[in-house]
């Protein structure tokens, strides 16, 4: 447990002091959201209708872009091997690193979601649900992303392959996340969608560390 906390603290500190990671993700998020009104037209009704989906896709892409640094820098400077040699199970290390990734990307993305909702004319009654859905959904992106990042860690220019590996598995999260927002904006209850997102989160938290740790182990041999 101590190792877990230490790794989370280390990764968060690295991400914050290194400057960039979180800022770049948020900037990318904002830029992607800005492109949509320019592409589809500024009509408020149209924007209100697509806003939930656009915000989710932008957040998903921003999280995807930051995934390659999840293991890559530690792999390159050798600290990943030391972590693997530590007495703590590699699964715990993966879980800690996924949590740190979420704290430095998913959490800020969720926190800034109402601002994006404002820009895209999302109905204010859906803002709370949007944040809640993102708080449940973005950790799933970090956990599934950890599998892809672990599989592609040793590969030069693995970024494209990482997207190809990870994006199909992001589909359920995207669907339920957008459905929750749409339901809330349409005056329906978002409860079932949020429960399904929570189920995805629990499943991913239980299973993804095993797969990612197995992938890391073979890449460290």
């Amino acid at each position: 447990m101590n190792t877990f906390a230490v790794i989370v603290a280390r990764d968060v500190r690295l991400a914050l002091r290194h400057g960039g990671g979180t800022m770049w993700a948020l900037l990318f998020y904002l830029l992607t959201v800005t492109l949509f009104p320019l592409a589809v037209g500024p009509e408020p009704e149209m924007l209100a209708r697509i806003s939930g989906g656009v915000i989710w896709v932008a957040a998903l892409l921003a999280a995807l872009l930051s995934l390659d640094r999840l293991f890559q820098s530690d792999f390159e400077d050798g600290s990943l091997e030391l972590l693997a040699l530590s007495p703590a199970p590699l699964e715990v290390v993966v879980l800690a690193k996924s949590l740190a990734h979420w704290l430095t990307t998913g959490l800020p993305l969720a926190a800034f979601a109402p601002l994006m909702g404002l820009l895209l004319n999302l109905h204010p009654s859906a803002w709370g649900v949007l944040v809640l859905a993102m708080l449940l959904g973005t950790p799933v992106l970090s956990l599934i992303g950890a599998i892809g990042a672990a599989l592609t860690v040793g590969i030069r220019r693995g970024g494209m392959l990482l997207s190809l590996v990870v994006v199909p598995f992001f589909v359920p999260t995207l669907i339920f996340g957008v459905s929750a927002v749409d339901a809330a904006a349409g005056g329906l209850t978002p409860r079932p969608h949020l429960l399904l997102l929570a189920a995805l989160l629990l499943g991913a938290a239980a299973l993804a560390p095993w797969a990612a740790a197995a992938a890391l182990r073979l890449n460290l041999e």
Partner: peptide, 8 residues
Amino acid sequence: AAAILALV
């Protein structure tokens, strides 16, 4: 690696 992906 491919086997892990196939199982996931």
